[in-house]
């Protein structure tokens, strides 16, 4: 797909099991630097596990994962997690205000996050600045997702891992988030890897796509592959025969 210098994340024969169950099976592939790559596949394909491996929340049983050319084991776990930021569908919030949530990444490092910087970030993700002192309990699903993404951005990640962040949102919120992610990709030069169930979204927003099934990477390349897949399993999946 691309040369090593253009690669943000590289998987080399990576396998991972949870007890007896093998979730990731000998995955080899790359995610290009500074681009948006979508990760599609039926439920249970191992997509979220792949993200947890990138973020260092779990380690592979075998194989190697390289981020910016370096094995992830050579990074300090905290450094790796700040570099490969994760935002989940659940958009878990810490109880309290939006400001408390946005401050959290820097609080963890013993630093302060100024209100002015927090307000700038809110504007960047398309939220009014008066949201800053609002309780997270009072936010809608789309607003929570924006706060969750903004919170991940506080760490200035080089890679942003987005796990089904729009799947529970209405069409308007989905479009807002899509626009936001494109803006983040352009403004912050962040590599985006986005898990989505929505193939139309994968085609429209992602330049590249990985298709995973049953723990394996079955096809990868430019997103147009979803319109003309080569692999029979992918053809069935795109047609909607696989879930």
């Amino acid at each position: 797909m691309n040369t090593l210098n253009d690669t943000a994340v590289q998987f080399k024969q990576v396998s991972y099991s949870d007890g007896e169950l093998q979730i990731i099976k000998n995955v080899t592939g790359t995610f290009p630097k500074g681009k948006i790559t979508t990760l599609v596949g039926p439920s249970g394909a191992g997509k979220t596990t792949l993200f947890r491996l990138c973020n260092g929340l779990i380690s592979p049983d075998s194989g190697e994962i390289l981020i910016n050319g370096k094995n992830i084991n050579s990074y300090e776990p905290t450094e790796l997690r700040r570099m490969a930021g994760l935002a989940l569908q659940s958009a878990t919030m810490l109880s309290g205000s939006v400001y408390k949530n946005l401050s959290m990444p820097l609080t963890l490092q013993g630093e302060e996050f100024s209100e002015a910087a927090a307000k700038d970030l809110l504007k960047d993700v398309g939220l009014d600045t008066d949201f800053l002192h609002r309780n997270v309990k009072d936010l809608s699903g789309g607003q929570r997702q924006k706060v969750s993404i903004a919170r991940t951005l506080v760490n200035k990640p080089k890679i942003l891992l987005l796990d089904e962040i729009t799947s529970s949102l209405d069409r308007v919120s989905q479009e807002e988030i899509e626009t936001l992610i494109k803006k983040i990709n352009n403004n912050y030069q962040v590599t985006i890897i986005w898990i989505t169930h929505n193939l139309q979204q994968a085609l429209s927003i992602g330049e590249y796509t990985w298709v995973m099934m049953n723990g394996e990477l079955v096809e990868s390349g430019e997103s147009s592959l979803l319109s003309h897949p080569q692999n029979d399993k992918v053809k069935h999946f795109v047609k909607g025969d696989t879930e």
Binding site: L57, T78, G85, T92, L108
Partner: peptide
Amino acid sequence: QNETELILSLGGTPKQ
């Protein structure tokens, strides 16, 4: 568990 993993994923230590 979700909160604990959230803090780890944001670069927090196990103690945090």
